[in-house]
Amino acid sequence: MKKAFLFLASGFEETEAIGTVDVLRRGSVEVTLVSLTGNKMVEGAHGIEVASDALFEEVDYKDADVLVLPGGMPGTNNLNAHEGLKTLLTRQYEAGKYVAAICAAPIVLGGLGLLKGKKATVYPGFEAQLTGAEVSSDAAVKDGNVITGHGPGLVYQFGLTILEALRGKEVAEETAAGLLL
């Protein structure tokens, strides 16, 4: 079974986190919600608390097929401040495995230099922080081992793009049909 790890930092965008997890689990991807806060309960940008499955330090990421960053503010800034996460993202990318980010979170990938020469999308107003990227306004973009999503209302397209990368077009189409998309 394919494995995904989605990271929760204080102030994450709830819709992007839960929507992505939902799509991936419907498509038979094992998803682990990982807290970067030191607590299993993490509060989102709109005051909704979500229970993570594990704390960052407790997880072995060697079998990760994709690492996923939801956006939101100040969640994106909190992701960007976590040095362990940034090291993990760089290793994942350099190993040729998938990294994915939606909304403002692609700026974390941009700051690490992972978007150089890649097509990527981001929430409007953050384009300048996608260092070296060819900026797109598409709902979701896959370029090599990088997947980016435009924003919260497009979370299903983002999740389905990740699902297609991991499990193939047929599984993504079946999942989309089950969601009435």
Rank of each mutant, 00 (worst) to 15 (best):
G113W: 11
R91W: 06
T87C: 08
G117C: 12
S136M: 14
L79W: 05
A165S: 14
N145H: 13
T90H: 03
K118E: 13
P124I: 10
P74Y: 10
D143N: 14
C103S: 06
G151R: 05
N77P: 02
Q157N: 15
A165K: 10
D138S: 15
P70C: 11
T76L: 09
L115P: 00
L89Q: 04
D63C: 12
G72I: 04
V68K: 03
T131V: 10
V135E: 12
A64V: 02
S136G: 10
I162W: 05
E164D: 01
N77W: 11
A64G: 03
G111V: 03
V59R: 05
G117D: 14
G159M: 03
D63G: 09
T76E: 04
E127H: 00
T148M: 08
L160P: 09
S137W: 08
D65N: 13
T161E: 14
V59C: 05
L130A: 03
L88F: 00
A165R: 05
D138G: 01
Q157P: 03
D138T: 08
G168W: 12
I162C: 11
N78G: 11
L85K: 01
D60V: 13
D60C: 10
E83G: 12
K169V: 03
T76N: 01
F158I: 11
C103F: 04
E94P: 04
A165L: 07
G96V: 09
I147V: 15
R167F: 07
T131G: 07
R167S: 15
C103P: 00
Y61C: 08
V108I: 04
T87E: 15
P74N: 08
L115E: 07
A128E: 13
G75I: 08
E94Q: 14
L154R: 12
G168M: 08
K86G: 09
G84C: 08
L154P: 02
V59E: 06
T148L: 10
A105D: 04
